[in-house]
Every structure is written in C-alpha cells, then in structure tokens.
Design a protein around this nucleic acid. Sequence first.
DNA 1: AATTACATTTCCATTTATGGAAAAATCGCA
DNA 2: TGCGATTTTTCCATAAATGGAAATGTAATT
Lengths: 299, 299
Amino acid sequence: MADLNDIAVFVKVAQLGSFSRASHALGMPVSTVSRKVSALEAELGVTLLQRTTRKLALTSQGQDYFHECSEPLNLLFDAERVLTQTQRKPEGTLKISVPVVLGQDPFLEFISDFLKLYPRIKIDLFITNLFLDLIAENVDVGIRFGELKDSTLIAKKLGSQVRYVVASPEYLKDRKPPTKPADLGLHQCVLLNGKNNEAEWELLNGRKRAEIRVAGPISSRDFQSVSTFVYRGHGIGLLPSTYCNDKIEKGELVRLLPDWASRQLEVHAVYPTRNFLPSRLHVFLEALRAWKSPLWTLP
Amino acid sequence: MADLNDIAVFVKVAQLGSFSRASHALGMPVSTVSRKVSALEAELGVTLLQRTTRKLALTSQGQDYFHECSEPLNLLFDAERVLTQTQRKPEGTLKISVPVVLGQDPFLEFISDFLKLYPRIKIDLFITNLFLDLIAENVDVGIRFGELKDSTLIAKKLGSQVRYVVASPEYLKDRKPPTKPADLGLHQCVLLNGKNNEAEWELLNGRKRAEIRVAGPISSRDFQSVSTFVYRGHGIGLLPSTYCNDKIEKGELVRLLPDWASRQLEVHAVYPTRNFLPSRLHVFLEALRAWKSPLWTLP
DNA sequence: AATTACATTTCCATTTATGGAAAAATCGCA
DNA sequence: TGCGATTTTTCCATAAATGGAAATGTAATT
C-alpha cells in the first residue's frame, strides 16, 4: 500500500491547488511536498496532478482519488483530536473495582463527591469480592486489601487496616468476657463473610499468633452491617479500628483481649501499567489518596 | 498529526491481537511494528495497548481509537485498489476533443467500433473547432490538424492531409476550366467554413504560392457535406485527397490545376504530459493510429 | 521449581527520507 | 520581446527510520 503520509500530503496539495501553499499548511519544505506527491504517483502508477511551474490541475483520476481520500483522512484526524483531548481532560469512563466491604455509604458518598467535582467523568463500578484480572476485564483501577498477587499492576498505598475484638456493654452484661483468644469459641460472634455462619479469626500479639474458629447467629458481607449488629449486642465482632475507636472512647463498645489484634492489612489502589495515565485516572487516584476512609488509616 | 503509517500498523496489531502476527501480515519486522506502535503512543500521549510478552489487550481508549480508525483506513485502501485497478484495465471515461470535420459517420463509426471492443470505456466527446486547453478542461486527448501550438502536450502523428482542386464533369460541361489559380475567383466554389460564403485558399506549386479569394453559393463545416455538393456539380472544391482519389480514378471528379495543391497538413493526436498513461488512453491511441481515416493518409 | 518456547523490546550498522539550496521552468508585466 | 518574480523539481549532506540480532520477560510444560 502507498505511504499514507504521502496521501495526506497529496490531499492537501489538491485542496489548496499549490505545492507552495500546501507546504506552508503542512509545515514542511516544498521539496518534501514535491517528492512525496511524485512518490505517491510512482507507487500508484497514476498521474494525479497535471503541473507546470505555474499551473496545477488535478487529472480526472486525481480528482476521484482526492474525493475518495478526503473524508477518511478527516475521520482519522478527528479520531486523534478526540483521543488526545479526552486524555488531557478529566473526562470519560472510569471502571472501578472494589471489594464488597466498600460498597457502603461512606465510599458511595466519596464517589458522589468526586463526580460532583468532575462532572465529565463517568464511573462504571464493580462491587465484588471476586478476583478480577484488571487487564483482561479492562478495569482502570481497583482497591485491594491485603497482599497483592498480580505483579504487573502498579500499586499505590492508600492506608492500612487493623481490626480489634470488640463487643457492646449490653452483650457483655450477663456474660464472662473472654480472657484468651480460645475463649472466643465459646461466644456468639458477628461474622464477615462467614461460611455456614462460621469463620476463622487470626489474631496476633507481638510474635504470638492464634487462630480461632468462631461462629454466630449473624454473618454479613460488609462492615457497615457487621458493626451495626455488634453495636446492638448481637455478639463479639472483629472490626476495623476506624469503626471502633470513637465508640470505645465513648464507652459504647468495649475492646476485648486488648493485647491482641488482627494482622495489619495494607490497602492499595492498583491499576495496569501505563506509560501515559489518563487524566481521569490521575485525578481519581489523587482524590482517593486524600479520602479519609472509614476502612483504613492514612499512612 | 501522528504518522498515518503508524496508525495503520496499530490497527493491524489490534485486529490480530499480536505484534508477531501483525508483522507477518504487514510484511515488516516485529521490531518495526513494536517501534511504530510505541511511537504512536508517544505521539498521542496515550497508552493504546496493554502488553506483556505473552499478553496483549487494548486499553479502552485503544479500543475506541481502533474502532474510529478501522473504517477510514479501509476506505483509503479501497480508494487505492479502485484507482490502480482502473489504471491497469481499459475502463473509465475518455474525454475526447475533435474538430467539426471529424464529426461524421466515418469517425463516429470508428468510435462505435472502439466502444464495442472496449465495453467498459465511456466516451465524452467534444466536437468543436474552438481551441481547447486540454489541461484546464481535463480533456484526455484531442485530434489536431496543422501546426501545434501548445508545447506542453505530447503529440503523436496520425497522418497527413493534402487537398486538391476538383470539380465534377457536370459542373465543367459548360465552363472554361481554370488554367491558373487566379481563375478560381471567376468560378463558383463550395466552401469549408466560409465567412459570408467567402474564403481564402492557399495553393502551393513547388516553391510557388498563391492565395486566392474564392466565393460560392454553398459553405459547410465538414468535408462530408462539402464533398457531396462538389460531387453534385455545385462548384469547385478544395478536398482532401482521401475524398478525391477514388472518384478521380473513376472519372466522377476532375482534378483541376493538377500542379497545385494545398499545404500539407500534419494530423496529430495530442494529450497532456503524463508519467503514467491510463490504459484506456493507451488503447485509444493505438486504435486511432491504426484507423484508416478518410481525412488523412497514414504515415 | 526449573527449563524451554515464544513474544516483545532494545540496540546498532545500514538504508532511506529529509530539508535547504540550487537549477529549471513558466507566467506576468513593462 | 526581455526580464523579474514565483513555483516546481532536483541534488546532496545530514538526520532519521529500518531490519536483523540480541536482550528481556512471561507463560507453559516437564
């Protein structure tokens, strides 16, 4: 196939009816314009332009070819303009994947505020605990708790989360509080993502580690629900510190086994490697970094 | 603007989902494909392809850009295919300009035969004695009698024409035949393109030249008509030898002043300079060269 | 877990394209 | 008719692109 840049040059010459004017318009020397048009004619085996040093006319084939090529070239130019404009402006669709625990008012409010700040951005939100291959699923960014698996993604740390063993005074009123982790097995617990309303809790105390099988009457998939049931005395919970600290201070919750806590989880925003970050992703990451989430503490 | 060839390469990679397959399809080394796609991304400031050495996926912007560019590139490819196909096959429209004297059955029959031979060719015929600028008027080919003026045209000699002074025996029956050119002024003459039924005839006899003002009752614009009136005894005519020789041999016409004749006119096919002759023009010129025209003798 | 196969990226010698200047040609004006 | 202005074409030193080989990295297989 002919050199596409030569075609664009030819079209510009045909439009302006002059090699000189075309060279000005294209920002290239007249000698280059001349050579490229001649090269195109040679490649096609067709005379497109009838020319002397002072006169220029399209041959009938040149006219046909010019008409056939003008529109596609305009479309290509438009495609580039739209692409680069979108890239530079915070606009377009962001596909975001977050775990179910984030699918709550605090995060939804954050998203709402973000969209009010950037009205040209659209959000396509996946709230799932399933592992998503961000590249294959064409997801722009995900939020991940805990260890990261996919090393081809870029990770930006958002914060960290530690969880405490807590219960309401009401729950504890008629009960003997646990004095060691194993005692939890004797208690009703409110679970996050329990299986058959059972779960394994891993607790650390310095170098000491305990794994306890716990059970309870209620299991839910997000900390909002879980914490509400804990607050209302339905059992002991293992809640992020951000859900507890205020209430513990106010006496509305009691921290149990205070020397023990969950393993500290790192929270990251992850996204596929890109040489050029779209503006919309860039501003989203910045907003995310600044957000005081109830689910993690800032670094 | 981005390098259009880079765009075409990107589109092929996106289509085939592989640099290697794209390099085979495009007949270029994989290193070139890689570099061109990277160059395009750099120029646009956008990551179009998400890639590891084993995985390739379009970013959402890459997908959009791919969809925007596929159709225009196909259109450009089609335009080239149509152009080069038309160039190689005898098809398309031929614009032909001929003087009025050719606008007769013999030439029209020639054109008819030509079109039957090449049914895909179309003829746009100008029968005019006006001088046409072939380039400006986008005329493919013209037939010219006499000296050529436009040096930027290519001329192919078709033949030559000389005209004789003749009259029918019927006309001469009761008249004294002319014995020198000046005597023609005393006779009725049948004119070609006369003004007010008068014309100037230039006759040569070796180095001798005579210019005679002649007049007559009939003037017409083509040799078919003129010769018919001469045959029927309406006066003396200055007819192309090709119209006379047979009839002179048969005694149906009498050549007068046999030492004198018109200046010899060269007949050419002329067409604008072209580095690449369309097939349709090429075959037309060959047919014209081979045609035994009543208006000129072959070289 | 290690190795192999295969794909993409990078490097460098060679080839090709470019841009500026000069040559050539044409048209308009005096 | 001749000259000057302007445009296109050609030439050549320089810059950039290319293609092949090697390097790098990833995924599949053993």
